[in-house]
C-alpha cells in the first residue's frame, strides 16, 4: 500500500516543497515510517511488554506482586548478584583497560600503524563473542589450556591449585573482557580524538601542570562518555548468555542461564516467575540505560 502511494510520480511531485507538505499531508508522511513502527511494536515492544505485564499477573490473570516477591528467594537473588558482579567487573575493568589502550594509541606518540591495527582488531574482537569465545578461553586457561600447562611446566605454577577456575566469577570476567575492552576502544577513541591538542597547550601556557589539566579539563570532558560506555558495557555483559553457557554449562548460576533453563523446561515450576525473571533483567539494564541517556545529554551539552 505505502509503496503504491510513493511510487506515484504525480503524488510525489505535488508534495515537493517540504514547507508546504506540513499540516495537510501529515497522515501521508507517517505512512513513510509506518513499517518501521509496526515492526518495532510487533517484534520489540509488545513481546517485551507482554513479559512485563505477565510478571505482575497470576495464573488467573489478576494483578499480583507475588512473582516479583518470589525473585527474592536466595537462589534467584544469588543469580542476580553474580550476574551484576560479573557484568560490573567486566564493564569497569574493560572500560579502564580500553581507555588506557585508547589513550596510548591516540596520545602516546606511537607509530600510525599501531593505531590502525588496534582499531581494526578491536572491531573484530568486539564482535567475537558467544560460543567460540568460550572455546578460545577453554583452550587457553582451561585445565588443559596452553597457558595453564605452560605455567605449570615452565614456572611450576599450578593456577588451578591456587584456586583459579575458568568456570568461575574470575574466569568469566576475564573471558568477557575479550569483547568488553575492544568495545570500549571502539566507542571511546572518537572521544579521545575529540580532546584537542590545543587544550593541553592552552592549559600549559596558563601555567597548569599536567595533573591540573587532567583534573580540571580531561577527566570532566571524558567522564560522561566514559560512564555512558561503562553502562553500555554493563548491559552488554548482563544479557550475554552464549559465552557463559558454552563455558560453564549450567554450573555457573547467572540470570540469563537461569532464564534459559526456565524457558526450556520451567525449572522454577511457575511460568509467571519466568516473566518476573525477565522483567528483573529489563529493569536492571533499563535503569542503567536511564543513566546512559542522562550522561549522553550532559556530554552533548558541552561538546556542541
Amino acid at each position: 500500500m505505502t509503496d503504491a502511494t510513493f511510487s506515484d510520480p504525480a503524488a510525489a511531485r505535488q508534495s515537493v516543497p517540504p514547507a508546504r507538505a506540513g499540516g495537510l499531508r501529515l497522515p501521508l508522511q507517517w505512512l513513510g515510517v509506518a513499517p518501521f513502527f509496526i515492526f518495532a511494536l510487533m517484534f520489540l515492544i509488545f513481546p517485551t511488554f507482554y513479559l512485563v505485564v505477565g510478571a505482575f499477573q497470576n495464573d488467573q490473570g489478576e494483578f499480583t506482586l507475588a512473582n516479583i516477591a518470589s525473585l527474592l528467594q536466595p537462589s534467584i537473588l544469588a543469580a542476580y548478584w553474580i550476574s551484576i558482579r560479573v557484568s560490573l567487573a567486566s564493564a569497569v575493568l574493560g572500560a579502564l583497560a580500553g581507555l588506557a589502550i585508547s589513550i596510548a594509541i591516540v596520545r602516546g606518540g606511537l607509530p600510525r600503524w599501531v593505531r590502525s591495527a588496534t582499531m581494526t582488531f578491536s572491531g573484530v574482537a568486539s564482535n567475537f563473542a558467544g560460543v567460540p569465545l568460550a572455546f578460545a578461553f577453554l583452550a587457553t586457561l582451561g585445565r588443559l589450556g596452553l597457558v595453564t600447562v605452560l605455567l605449570r611446566t615452565w614456572f611450576d605454577i599450578n593456577i588451578y591449585g591456587l584456586g583459579f577456575n575458568i568456570l568461575s566469577f574470575a574466569g568469566l570476567t576475564l573471558t568477557y573482557l575479550f569483547f568488553q575492552i575492544p568495545l570500549m576502544v571502539v566507542i571511546i577513541t572518537p572521544a579521545i580524538d575529540g580532546l584537542k591538542k590545543e587544550w593541553g597547550e592552552a592549559a600549559a601556557t596558563l601555567g597548569a601542570t599536567q595533573v591540573q589539566f587532567w583534573r580540571m579539563v580531561v577527566i570532566p570532558v571524558l567522564w560522561p562518555s566514559f560512564l555512558g560506555t561503562v553502562i553500555l558495557l554493563f548491559a552488554n555483559a548482563f544479557g550475554a548468555i552464549a559465552t557463559a553457557y558454552a563455558l560453564t554449562g549450567s554450573s555457573l548460576n547467572i540470570v540469563p542461564i537461569l532464564l534459559y533453563a526456565q524457558i526450556r523446561g520451567d525449572v522454577l515450576h511457575n511460568p509467571h516467575l519466568g516473566y518476573a525473571l525477565a522483567f528483573g533483567m529489563i529493569f536492571i539494564t533499563g535503569l542503567a540505560n536511564v543513566f546512559y541517556i542522562w550522561f549522553r545529554t550532559r556530554s552533548e551539552r558541552w561538546l556542541k
Partner: peptide
C-alpha cells in the same frame, strides 16, 4: 623552561576554549 613556567598568554586559531567550563 617548560611552557607552564614561562608566564605567557597564547591564543589559538581554533579558540581552544575548555568546553566543560
Amino acid at each position: 623552561l617548560k611552557p607552564n613556567q614561562r608566564n605567557i598568554g597564547m591564543v589559538f586559531q581554533a579558540y581552544a576554549l575548555f568546553p566543560n567550563l
